[in-house]
């Protein structure tokens, strides 16, 4: 790209400084929140001083045992992975149809997939939880996975549809003209091209599922609580809640779990940004 097309960051303008100041404030809050939780979780005791008087890791072992976090982390990871896999398997084929076909009732179908994303989770969560309990699924892992699918499947569909639309349909025709059958078009051509999009959608679903509180909270119970729900229950437990530092320790474990999953997931994303590469190359000639 030619240097002339780059605009220099406009440094001197007061409005720009205003933006930077706002961002700095945001950063201070953000880091303050994060660091405060981490420091608190390692603190022995911390009341009205700048820093706790002494550090310890006891809070972690204590929280781990008290809330049986081994199980909770296992549930969190398991539920997240299951939800990601199912929503990709269900959502990608549907996204393909919506991207490539015109059929009667397409708008209704689109609306059906859009509504769960637009509605507040509680709105459909409460009737859904009621149904789950009446089917005897209350407080089970099955219920937790199922309720998480409600926003996740439409989310995969909505993110994958434009992604599929940008893949030239002539590529599929070309594969057919080369003698590929429908199944081969999907496995040999489309699947590799969709990998970056699927991974991106999958990671977003993963983050959402780990962080999703409302729906899980409505149907989960002991043995099927995810980390967020466990933390919430800890904070709101009868009698003023659990000791603050235990909650902080749990929160740090939550963030660590999220980060580990993200890092693992992101490791798979980078090598295959093929579609973007191809698009760039096209722009050049």
């Amino acid at each position: 790209m030619a240097a002339t097309t780059l605009e220099r960051p406009v440094a001197a303008r007061p409005s720009t400084w205003f933006v930077w100041a706002g961002m700095a404030a945001f950063g201070v809050f953000l880091l303050g929140i994060l660091v405060a939780v981490v420091v608190d979780s390692f603190g022995r005791q911390w009341f009205d001083t700048w820093f706790p008087d002494g550090l310890t890791v006891e809070r972690y072992t204590e929280a781990w045992d008290r809330f049986s976090l081994g199980e909770v982390v296992g549930v969190t990871v398991g539920v997240a992975v299951l939800v990601v896999v199912i929503s990709v398997l269900v959502g990608v084929p549907a996204a393909y149809v919506l991207a490539r076909r015109d059929f009667p009732g397409k708008r209704v179908v689109m609306l059906l997939f859009l509504l769960p994303v637009l509605m507040p989770p509680i709105t459909y969560g409460i009737p859904l939880a009621t149904v789950m309990y009446s089917f005897g699924l209350g407080r089970t892992l099955t219920a937790v996975v199922l309720v998480n699918l409600v926003p996740s499947v439409p989310f995969v569909i909505l993110t994958m549809t434009p992604f599929i639309e940008q893949i030239n349909p002539a590529i599929e025709s070309a594969a057919r003209m080369c003698g590929a059958r429908t199944r081969q078009v999907f496995t040999r051509i489309l699947a590799p091209l969709l990998v970056p999009g699927i991974l991106a959608a999958g990671i977003l679903v993963l983050v959402r599922t780990v962080g999703l509180f409302e729906l899980t909270f409505l149907v989960s119970g002991p043995g099927s609580d995810t980390l967020v729900v466990a933390i919430y229950r800890g904070m709101t437990a009868a009698g003023g809640g659990e000791a603050r530092q235990l909650i902080s320790a749990m929160s740090v474990i939550y963030t660590a779990t999220m980060l580990v999953m993200l890092v693992v997931a992101l490791r798979f994303v980078n090598p295959t940004q093929l579609v973007a590469q191809v698009k760039e190359a096209r722009d050049d000639d």
């Binding site: 809050f29 303050g32 939780v37 608190d40 983050v207 962080g211 509180f213 967020v228 904070m235 603050r244």
Partner: peptide, 16 residues
């Protein structure tokens, strides 16, 4: 986005 509401809440209580 990765922090989630519950952790943000806990952090706010301590920090602010």
């Amino acid at each position: 986005i990765t922090l989630g509401t519950v952790l943000t809440a806990q952090g706010l209580l301590i920090f602010a």
